[in-house]
């Protein structure tokens, strides 16, 4: 029997899942904090802009955005299947297209900073 090529998709899913498990709660907390008017000095616009302008900042932001998207896409695909939506090819095409679109958009916007 031939070995599966699933690792291509699963690799981004595993990396994205692990990353978002750590990063997303922190992002939610920080967003809430900022929304409530307590912006720490570290998160001031000028500093975040400088971070996003640096190549390492761009790379980090791209990794967080794209991997989270691919992780969520694969999770959604499996959830749909487990809930009885068996049109797997259609679901997979839609969710992965969204993730791909998001990743490309991230590259475009990050390159403009």
């Amino acid at each position: 029997m031939a070995k599966s090529n699933k690792p291509i998709i699963w690799g981004t899913f595993a990396a994205g899942g692990t990353l978002s498990a750590f990063v997303t709660p922190v992002l939610i907390l920080l967003t809430l904090l900022v929304a409530l008017g307590h912006t720490p000095e570290m998160l001031a616009y000028a500093r975040l802009h400088a971070f996003a302008a640096h190549w390492f900042g761009k790379l980090s932001l791209f990794a967080v955005i794209s991997l989270s998207l691919w992780g969520a896409a694969h999770r959604l695909r499996i959830t749909c299947y487990d809930f009885g939506i068996r049109a797997d090819t259609l679901v997979a095409t839609i969710v992965y297209l969204v993730a791909a679109f998001g990743s490309v958009a991230a590259i475009v916007y990050l390159s403009r900073i």
Partner: peptide, 17 residues
């Protein structure tokens, strides 16, 4: 063993329920 378990019908059918 990988010839059997690293296949679609092997571990990749698992969705970690």
């Amino acid at each position: 063993r990988q010839e059997e378990i690293a296949t679609t019908e092997g571990v990749w059918e698992c969705s970690f329920v």
